[in-house]
């Protein structure tokens, strides 16, 4: 019973900022202009913050931001699934010289924080952007590395984490299944597609959710490589709105809208998240 009470208290502490955001997103602007702190209970349910034309979130380019975030997250997720599956298969099942050293190098990349690589990555993007725009024969592609999707997704197409997660799972697939596929005449790519991927669906789902969440919640990188409001992701867009103090209630409403898709995703796939985190440590 005491542990139950402790859990309730902890949950309340964790939920409090979310609660405040929800309440503030429904306040009229006057609530924020008072001498006292804004009330923690909505005095007036101002749904206009969300929907009213001319003054709600729907009036800001939030739709565009959400769309950008969705495209960026989807591309990153898909790319990570492909690259991680391929590299994890190699690390789990193929024998090649330097495999273990290379795998440790992969793992080491997980210890490098984004902030360390962000400047060189940005310089790379600038270089690419400059060179692609210079090339007349490429200009028709309209590929922009700064202020464009390629720059937003490029650094995150492959990760050590994804490779590690999938490799650990693939290693639990009985070796005899792969032998059987080999006897049945299946090469590596077909074995991967018809045997390993179907058996690794759970791990792939886990990776997909992690990748999507992480991509969706990115802040620093999109801030750096986008200047054009049209290319802003939702986190940057909302932050820009929040900077405008006269519309802080709308910014809170925008935060909720940026957060909702993730909430739905986590609720829907929660079991894969838990399974992924405990994968390998708990059998079954």
């Amino acid at each position: 019973m005491p542990s139950y009470a402790l859990l309730v208290v902890c949950s309340a502490i964790l939920m409090f900022p979310l609660y405040v955001t929800v309440v503030f997103s429904l306040h009229p602007l006057t609530e924020f202009l008072k001498e006292d702190a804004p009330s923690l209970w909505p005095s007036f349910w101002q749904w206009d913050n969300y929907f009213a034309s001319g003054e709600g979130v729907s009036d800001t380019p939030v739709g565009r931001y959400l769309f950008n975030s969705f495209v960026v997250s989807a591309v990153i997720t898909l790319a990570q699934l492909i690259t991680a599956t391929l590299s994890a298969y190699a690390f789990a099942f193929l024998k090649f010289p330097g495999r273990n050293v290379l795998f440790i190098v992969f793992l080491a990349t997980m210890m490098v924080p984004l902030e360390v690589s962000i400047i060189p990555n940005f310089q790379t993007m600038q270089w690419l952007d400059a060179h692609f725009t210079e090339q007349a024969w490429l200009s028709w592609t309209q590929i922009r590395w700064i202020d464009g999707y390629p720059g937003l997704v490029a650094p995150f197409l492959a990760t050590g984490f994804g490779t590690f997660l999938l490799r650990q799972y693939f290693m639990t697939i009985p070796r005899e299944l792969l032998d059987a596929a080999e006897m049945d005449g299946y090469g590596h790519l077909r074995t991967l597609l018809y045997v390993v991927v179907p058996l690794g669906r759970g791990a792939l789902a886990t990776l997909a959710i992690f990748a999507f969440l992480q991509a969706w919640n990115q802040y620093l990188w999109p801030l750096l490589v986008t200047n054009d409001p049209n290319m802003r992701t939702v986190q940057i867009g909302i932050a820009a709105e929040a900077a405008n103090i006269s519309r802080i209630n709308v910014a809170f409403a925008g935060t909720i809208m940026a957060f909702l898709p993730m909430l739905l995703l986590v609720v829907a796939f929660q079991r894969y998240l838990v399974r992924g985190l405990f994968g390998g440590s708990v059998k079954g």
Partner: peptide, 24 residues
């Protein structure tokens, strides 16, 4: 080859397990 653990593909029906090698 018949394996000690049978090595049946757990995600496929019996039919597909048997047909798997023929498809190649």
């Amino acid at each position: 080859m018949v394996f000690q653990s049978y090595a049946l593909y757990p995600h496929m029906s019996v039919y597909n397990n048997i047909a798997f090698g023929l498809r190649m």
